[in-house]
């Protein structure tokens, strides 16, 4: 039986993990990019490339760093045993708009923005950071779909990977939502089984827990 071992939730207001801990509280009401940068500094990670990433990649990066902190076993997998599955409904809309602005308004198309106009780049960033060479898939769905995550994960854990890091990650104007979780083939008995129902339940719980914005 495959398991859902751990998760974290990033919004413009806060970052929480499954251990129930409120890790970061955006009491100052920072704009998403600034909030993510503050969190990066608090985590004391030395990876200057972080600053060059778009917000989608920054959120995915931090989510995975937090999962790594709480799941030391992640370091035990071989470099191609961890698959990546990310999804959202808006692809790279936020960066797409910035790139359009660079050529339509500033008359200088920006190469560093253009490369982030593919949402799958965030998985490239995770692969580079962690030296992961395994499977990766990015899909655009109309809305969060627990069945899709469960079906794909259970399928990729059959033969192609021993763990799968999944993420539903949306960053659009005024909205930031990243639900990132770790699915493993060899979780222990106390872990949550990896099914449509359990993923759905966790997703609903964290959405409910999200406190109203103080901004």
């Amino acid at each position: 039986m495959n398991h859902l071992s751990s998760y974290c939730h990033i919004s413009t207001k806060e970052i929480v993990t499954d251990k129930g801990a409120l890790l970061f509280d955006n009491t100052e009401g920072l704009e998403v990019n600034d909030f993510l940068k503050t969190v990066y500094k608090k985590l004391a990670i030395d990876y200057p490339k972080f600053y060059k990433m778009d917000s989608l990649s920054k959120a995915a990066f931090l989510g995975v760093e937090l999962l790594k902190k709480e799941n030391a076993a992640l370091a035990e997998y071989a470099d191609d045993e961890i698959a990546l599955l990310f999804a959202n409904s808006n692809a790279s809309e936020d960066t797409d708009k910035k790139f359009v602005n660079s050529y339509a308004e500033e008359h200088a198309p920006s190469p560093s923005l253009f490369v982030y106009t593919l949402p799958s780049i965030l998985m490239g960033e995770l692969a580079i950071r962690n030296k992961w060479y395994g499977e990766s898939l990015f899909v655009i769905l109309q809305k969060f779909d627990a069945a899709f995550f469960a079906d794909y994960c259970n399928m990729i854990l059959l033969r192609n990977a021993k763990a799968c890091i999944c993420g539903w990650i949306e960053i659009t104007e005024g909205k930031t939502e990243a639900f990132i979780f770790l699915a493993e083939k060899n979780g222990n008995e106390n872990n949550t089984p990896l099914t449509k129902q359990t993923i759905e339940k966790i997703y609903k719980t964290i959405m409910k827990q999200s406190r109203p914005s103080k901004v």
Partner: peptide
């Protein structure tokens, strides 16, 4: 069919 990452550079 499978996929694999370079884990090297984004572009």
């Amino acid at each position: 069919g499978t996929s694999g990452n370079d884990a090297n550079h984004i572009s």
